[in-house]
Simulated scan of single mutants.
Amino acid sequence: MPNYSFRCRHCGDTFEVNRPMAQSSDPAVCPRGHDDTVKLLTTFATVGRAGGGAPQAPTPPPSGGGCCGGGCCG
């Protein structure tokens, strides 16, 4: 289950709630009992290679065409 971060507008505390994605927009109560909370935007990033298999050759850059990619610009 994903974690969602919230901030209490009353006391300023930030806390996390573990709940199903279907309940991601439901209101959350601050651990101190305040109900004026706002869901925070969180980001998630990973570093690594998908698949974990043998390294693959880099993809060659697109060829020709200049700015529009198809060579139709003059």
Rank of each mutant, 00 (worst) to 15 (best):
M1L: 08
P2I: 00
P2R: 01
N3H: 12
N3I: 09
N3A: 12
N3S: 14
N3L: 13
S5G: 08
F6L: 10
F6M: 07
F6W: 15
R7E: 12
R7F: 10
R7Q: 14
C8K: 02
C8G: 11
C8A: 06
C8Q: 03
C8M: 03
R9S: 04
H10R: 11
H10E: 11
H10N: 12
H10C: 10
C11W: 06
C11Y: 06
C11V: 01
D13Q: 13
D13M: 13
D13F: 10
T14W: 07
T14I: 13
F15V: 02
F15L: 04
E16I: 02
V17K: 08
V17F: 09
V17P: 07
V17I: 09
N18S: 12
N18V: 02
R19Q: 12
P20I: 01
M21Y: 15
M21H: 15
M21K: 15
A22F: 12
S24Q: 14
S24I: 04
S24G: 11
S25K: 14
S25M: 15
S25H: 14
S25Q: 15
D26A: 14
D26C: 08
D26S: 11
D26W: 05
P27F: 08
P27Q: 04
A28H: 08
A28C: 05
C30F: 02
P31W: 07
P31Y: 10
R32D: 13
G33L: 02
G33E: 06
G33V: 00
H34V: 02
D35I: 01
D35F: 05
D35P: 11
D35W: 09
D36I: 03
D36P: 12
T37R: 06
T37K: 04
T37M: 07
V38M: 13
V38N: 08
K39F: 06
K39V: 04
K39P: 12
L40M: 13
L40V: 03
L40A: 07
L40K: 11
L40G: 05
T42F: 03
T43V: 10
T43E: 09
T43W: 11
T43P: 03
F44I: 05
F44P: 03
F44S: 14
A45H: 14
V47F: 15
G48V: 05
R49S: 14
A50S: 10
A50C: 04
G51R: 00
G51K: 00
G52Q: 03
G52N: 05
A54C: 03
P55T: 02
Q56R: 12
Q56V: 06
Q56H: 10
A57F: 10
P58D: 09
P58C: 02
P58K: 01
P58Q: 02
T59Q: 13
T59A: 13
P60D: 04
P60L: 08
P60Q: 05
P61D: 11
P61L: 12
P62V: 03
S63T: 14
G64W: 11
G64Y: 14
G65W: 04
G65N: 08
G66R: 03
C67P: 11
C67S: 12
G69V: 00
G69M: 00
G70M: 01
G70P: 00
G70A: 02
C72E: 10
C72M: 07
C72V: 03
G74H: 05
G74N: 06
G74A: 06
